[in-house]
Amino acid sequence: MITLREVSKQYKVGRDWVDAVKPTSLHVEKGQIQGIIGFSGAGKSTLLRMANLLELPTAGEVYIDGQELTGLNAGELREARRSIGMIFQHYNLLSNETCAANVEFVLKAANVPSKQRKRRVEECLEIVGLADKARQYPAQLSGGQKQRVAIARALANNPKVLLCDEPTSALDPVTTLSILEFLEKINREFQVTIMLVTHEIQVAKRLCSQIAVMEGGVITEQLDRSRPDIEPVTPFGKFLFDTTNSSSVWYRRGEQHE
């Protein structure tokens, strides 16, 4: 469903070019939940953002459901993006619009006729359990509720793919769990393929069918929940997975560098 082929991203910082993502490939099958985990600056958000070309790859190709996004013109890309939902760490809701209007915006953007829009807005808010908040503004909601509105918005155009950029990183553990349950439900009930970036190992373990470990701008290994016999091999993968307390992760990380 999602194929990133030898994508890379370089930024110009001052006079130097910096590799955010070195040539990397990733393939996600339909219906899977692909996690990408790594420390800050590993390039995981950049990799995710290349999947809908919010970040234009310096080189490489991006395919969604067999369609090469990197070969599309601006109008075709807009069309293609309507079947790729996205949610963000800081929700990115329109602050001067109601929850219903936030969901409706993406339907308007897809030129859905007015009557159908109203119905779809209700359905989507229903899915995330916020039908009663339709007329409220984002500032009146809790963080978890805002993220659920963002999920409703991402679902409005019946996407095939949902991209999640650190969706629970601003939330407390209990709310995190409820958001993960919604994502699971969406994946199961609507067969939406999910690609999720996180730095929280518990989130990745709880939700993902595959986990890619990223370090220094490349995927260093890909772990699969259905193959527990395949143990992490890279030092980074090992300590990500076999520690129970996060402080020891940092402690070991420090040791490795000495």
């Binding site: 919010l54 293609a80 993006r81 809701l93 915006f105 993406v106 953007a109 155009n157």
Partner: peptide, 19 residues
């Protein structure tokens, strides 16, 4: 990020400006 979310949803320039 708010503008970016609209871009990611496939909104046209007209929708981004007015919406």
């Amino acid at each position: 990020g708010i503008i970016e979310a609209a871009v990611a949803s496939g909104a046209s320039l007209r929708h981004i400006v007015f919406g």
